[in-house]
């Protein structure tokens, strides 16, 4: 494992809402991500599997989250994720950082196509299912420090 990326084990008040969207019950990656966030001193707010768009938005507002991490493994992500960014905007948190990872489409599409599909939906970063949690955690710290939310490592 990499070291904790300049964090020195200190809590720096980053909160991430994570969950598996739609009618998807894939629970394993979700449990691994939660542990990985904790171990990196980031507060996970895990809304678990089968989470609706509304649950993501509500959880993000209630916990004043810095980011939303959406997972989708079962292929319906395309239908499930449409309109999530707009919902965040309507509720006044349109600028929250939003990542997605998993098996994101049905059938074979090039990664560039998949990534574009989700970037166009308003996600800030898109990950394939074999991504190690640390990669997304490192990206999050970078994105947050670029946005000036955290003093940076």
């Amino acid at each position: 494992m990499k070291e904790q990326n300049g964090n020195d084990g200190e809590q720096d008040d980053i909160t991430v809402v994570l969950g598996v969207i739609g009618s998807d019950v894939h629970a394993i990656g979700n449990q691994i991500l939660e542990r990985a966030l904790e171990e990196n001193g980031i507060k996970p707010v895990n809304i678990g599997v089968m989470a609706s768009q509304e649950e993501f938005v509500d959880a993000a507002i209630e916990t004043d989250a810095d980011a939303i991490w959406v997972s989708s493994l079962y292929g319906h992500g395309e239908i499930d994720c449409r309109g999530l960014r707009e919902k965040l905007e309507e509720r006044g948190i349109g600028d929250v950082i939003m990542y997605i990872g998993g098996n994101l489409v049905i059938g074979k599409k090039s990664w560039e196509e998949v990534e574009k599909l989700y970037l166009d939906m308003g996600f800030d970063r898109v990950y394939s299912s074999d991504t190690q949690p640390q990669e997304a955690i490192d990206d999050l710290r970078e994105d947050l420090s670029a946005a000036g939310d955290v003093s940076g490592g």
Binding site: L73, Y74, G75, N103, L104, I106, G107, K108, S129, D130
Partner: peptide
């Protein structure tokens, strides 16, 4: 294609 989700 298992790693990519639903196969051709």
């Amino acid at each position: 294609h298992e790693a990519e989700g639903i196969p051709s």
